[in-house]
Computed example of a mutant assay.
Amino acid sequence: MDLKDRRISEWKRFYESFKFAWSGIFQTFKAERNFQIHVFITVLVCIGGLALHFTKFEWIVILFLVGGMLAFELMNTALERVVDLVTKEFHPLAKSAKDAAAGAVFIYAILSVIIGIIIVSNHF
């Protein structure tokens, strides 16, 4: 394989990594109610931010919160599926892993709501 073919192959793998990522996002959206809820709330928050004329800094904070929330939910889904792949039977460690991942999502959701309330309260 010459240098040109190797570069094309690297770009193809790079492109395909984006395809796989989008596929994971869309599959999660189709299958996971919580992810759908988070996306719906994201849309509402963005509409609210436009209506309230969030500052650039407020938008940065909101985008980090929304992006983090969606990323946490994707990771939680990935962990749940891996655990389900490893064992179909009840196992205390599997439950513990799933509960811990769900707890991480829950903590970030609470933090996001609190910060969102602080940001929105500045506009009233």
Rank of each mutant, 00 (worst) to 15 (best):
K56G: 15
I47P: 02
Q27C: 09
I62Q: 04
G24T: 04
V45N: 05
G68T: 01
F18M: 11
I60A: 13
D84R: 04
L52D: 05
I8F: 14
V82P: 07
L63Y: 03
V82F: 11
Y15D: 14
G48W: 01
A71D: 10
R13K: 09
V61R: 03
V61F: 02
W22Y: 14
A51T: 11
L65M: 05
G49E: 03
T77E: 09
F40V: 11
L63C: 01
A71I: 07
D5T: 14
V39Y: 07
L63M: 02
E10F: 11
F26H: 14
R33W: 14
A31P: 06
F72W: 02
T55P: 01
V39M: 06
G68P: 01
L50N: 12
V86G: 09
E10I: 08
V61H: 02
L85C: 11
H53A: 10
F29A: 07
H38P: 08
E80V: 07
N34S: 13
T77Y: 07
M69L: 12
K56M: 09
V43P: 05
L44F: 04
K88M: 03
L50W: 12
E16F: 15
N34T: 09
L50C: 08
F72Q: 04
M69D: 15
C46N: 10
K19I: 13
W22V: 11
R6E: 15
R33S: 10
R7S: 13
F57H: 10
K19Q: 13
F29K: 05
K88I: 03
G24D: 09
L50R: 09
V66K: 01
H91N: 12
Y15V: 14
V82A: 10
H38K: 14
L52P: 00
F35P: 06
R33N: 11
T55E: 06
I62F: 04
I41C: 03
F35N: 05
V45W: 08
N76W: 04
E10G: 06
F40P: 10
G67W: 00
V61T: 01
V43C: 05
L65Q: 00
F26A: 15
Q36E: 00
S17D: 04
M69Q: 14
V39P: 06
E73T: 05
W59I: 02
L63W: 03
A31V: 01
R7F: 15
K12D: 13
T87I: 01
L50G: 10
E16C: 11
T28Y: 05
V83Y: 04
E16N: 15
E10V: 07
W11S: 12
R33Y: 14
V43T: 06
T55W: 00
R33H: 11
G49I: 00
M75F: 08
I62S: 02
F90D: 15
Q27R: 11
H53Y: 07
F35W: 04
I60P: 07
A78D: 10
F54P: 00
L74G: 00
E10A: 09
G48V: 03
